[in-house]
């Protein structure tokens, strides 16, 4: 097994070659190749159980690789934003306390230093959360909550931001808000890798996509990979792809069938 060797001077942040991971004996990732360069903005799409989250764990270095090679740039700084749906919103923590968690390893005493207070204020201001530092995390809107966890990741000045389903369970406005935030961060020089189930709302807007189903089915621009053939090999279902304003629109045939067979029932009242 060869893992985590220093990257050669190829300018990449991360390079995966033939990465294979298993839970017990079942392969979750099988010979995955992936390059992550600086300034890259990549979306990973695939059905549930396709290995998306496992791939993120490999990038983060928290998942043992059974076979293959993971090369990372020396002293690579990665910020991780988990799914907000997994967060305990009742946990007694304010916005600033949450953001400060990124500095856990920097200081022993519980209270923040002057530098930490300044950095926290700056990152919250940058993400439009300037007036929310002392709010409990439950008291924020969906978009603001997502921004808090992005802010925590940015406290470590990451070269690469890894996000697991950043728009899962949020409304269209929040999704739009998050996408714009990520685009701004990427333009400012932070590479981003995220997973998503949302082909039309997120994936088709990204500059680079990886279609994953245990192994990489296809990688490229949305126009290259969001095709009926690739989607069928990735999701195991036939999907139509239309084009609107130069962007692919994916239509799930099951949705059509469902509506035809099960018309909306009239209300009992």
């Amino acid at each position: 097994m060869r893992t985590r060797r220093p990257a050669p001077d190829d300018g990449l942040l991360l390079r995966l070659r033939g990465v294979t991971c298993r839970y017990d004996h079942d392969p979750v990732l099988d010979h995955v190749d992936l390059d992550i360069g600086p300034d890259q903005f990549t979306g990973i799409v695939g059905p549930s159980g396709s290995g998306k989250t496992t791939l993120l764990k490999v990038l983060l270095g928290t998942m043992a690789v059974r076979d293959g090679e993971v090369r990372r740039a020396p002293d690579l700084r990665i910020g991780y934003v988990p799914q907000v749906e997994t967060v305990d919103w009742n946990f007694p923590v304010t916005v600033s306390q949450c953001v400060l968690m990124a500095r856990t390893r920097g200081r022993v005493v519980p209270w923040p230093s002057a530098t930490e207070r300044r950095d926290t204020a700056a990152v919250l201001e940058r993400l439009g959360l300037g007036g929310f530092a002392d709010r409990h995390i439950r008291q924020l809107s969906g978009g603001q909550q997502q921004r808090v966890f992005v802010a925590r990741a940015l406290m470590g000045d990451p070269q690469l931001l890894v996000m697991d389903e950043p728009t899962s369970g949020v409304d269209a406005t929040t999704r739009h808000d998050v996408l714009h935030l990520l685009d701004d961060l990427n333009r400012a020089g932070t590479a981003i890798v995220l997973t998503t189930h949302d082909l039309n709302g997120i994936a088709s807007h990204l500059p680079h996509l990886v279609c994953l189903n245990t192994t990489v089915i296809a990688a490229g621009t949305p126009q290259d990979v969001l095709t009926t053939d690739v989607l069928e090999r990735t999701f195991g279902a036939r999907m139509d792809v239309l084009e609107h304003a130069g962007m692919p629109i994916v239509i799930d045939r099951h949705t059509h069938l469902h509506h035809r067979v099960l018309p909306l029932r009239k209300s009992a009242s």
Binding site: L60, G61, T62, I78, Y80, P82, T86, V87, D88, F91, V93, Q97, C98, L100, M101, A102, R103, T104, R105, R107, V108, V109, P110, R152, G156
Partner: peptide, 23 residues
């Protein structure tokens, strides 16, 4: 608890990200 406060808070609130952050 005083000296390990930050580690305890991060681990209790968000163990997955804490582990990814080196805690």
């Amino acid at each position: 608890v005083f000296l390990g406060y930050r580690h305890l808070l991060f681990t209790t609130f968000d163990p997955e990200v804490a582990a990814a952050s080196g805690v």
